[in-house]
Simulated scan of single mutants.
Amino acid sequence: MAKFLNTSATTYYLEELIKHSSERLYLISPYLKLNDRIKELLEDKNRMKIDIRIVYGKSELQPAEASWLKTLDYVRTSYCQNLHAKCYISESACIITSLNLYEFSQINNNEMGILLTRLNDTEVYRDAYEEATRIIRISEEVKISLDVVNKSPETNTPPETHSHQGLTTSKLAEKWGMNRAECNQKLCEAGLQELNGKNYFLTEKGKQSGASVKKGQYGYFIVWSADLTL
């Protein structure tokens, strides 16, 4: 029988689901920023050579997550456009929840979810598993690379000799010791960018600060000066 989960219960059973997986593990979440405990469990499963698939739905994978994922040989990461589902499933259990695989959500948000098992909730588990595999099929696998070299388009100068190496908003937030949402808010309050709908746009003041707009694999994003202060 399905079990209702609140925020703390979701976190607990998610850890249990990962811990007890022995064949496969699918983690589907729009936002991806893992806490140390989840990373430790996934590293153990990677050593056991279990098939692990992580699907996320935002265009920018945070540098810290990319660096960590690069070290795992048996974890495949995919990007799914317009992903909003949060589903964590192994060969024996499944959690469907509002909780993103995001450290901030696990600590600060009020979440709900349900726990299903293959043994006791056979039909629902099967439907959830089939939908999870469909999402994986339509997702675009991401090759995690740390070989990123930033060069000035005007001078072709390597970053170590250039005084304004660019930082994404996520990297800037990490440098300032805050989450991305807080960083975006501060940048808006400073008049460096503005929110229009769901997207942030660079202002004239932002351009004067040394920021620029770049085109990535999944769309445009702002690159800020590493020397930026508020």
Rank of each mutant, 00 (worst) to 15 (best):
I18N: 04
Q106H: 06
P158V: 00
R53F: 05
A190Y: 06
A66P: 01
L27A: 07
A85R: 12
D51H: 07
G177R: 04
G210C: 10
Y129N: 10
M112R: 10
S139N: 05
A2G: 01
W68S: 11
L101H: 06
R134S: 12
K143C: 02
L202E: 07
S209D: 06
K171R: 15
I114C: 07
P30G: 06
L14Y: 04
W68P: 11
N109H: 12
S92T: 15
M48S: 12
L17Q: 09
V213S: 06
S163G: 01
R76I: 10
A66N: 12
K143R: 10
L42C: 05
K49C: 04
C188E: 15
E204Y: 02
G191V: 13
F104V: 14
A181W: 08
N179L: 03
Y220L: 14
E111C: 06
A2W: 05
L14V: 09
A64R: 13
R37G: 00
E43P: 00
N179V: 12
F201V: 04
V55H: 02
L5K: 10
S92H: 09
E154D: 13
S90Q: 07
Y125W: 14
S98P: 04
G191L: 08
I144R: 08
H20Y: 14
V124G: 00
H20M: 07
Y31V: 03
A173P: 02
G191H: 07
S22T: 15
L202N: 04
F201C: 02
Y129T: 03
A2H: 07
F104R: 10
R76L: 02
S145Y: 03
A2R: 13
K58I: 13
E65S: 06
M1A: 10
A226Y: 01
I28D: 05
S209N: 06
E174K: 11
L187V: 11
D73G: 05
G113Y: 03
V142T: 12
Q208M: 14
G197Y: 08
V149Y: 01
V142Q: 13
S170P: 01
T77W: 02
N82T: 11
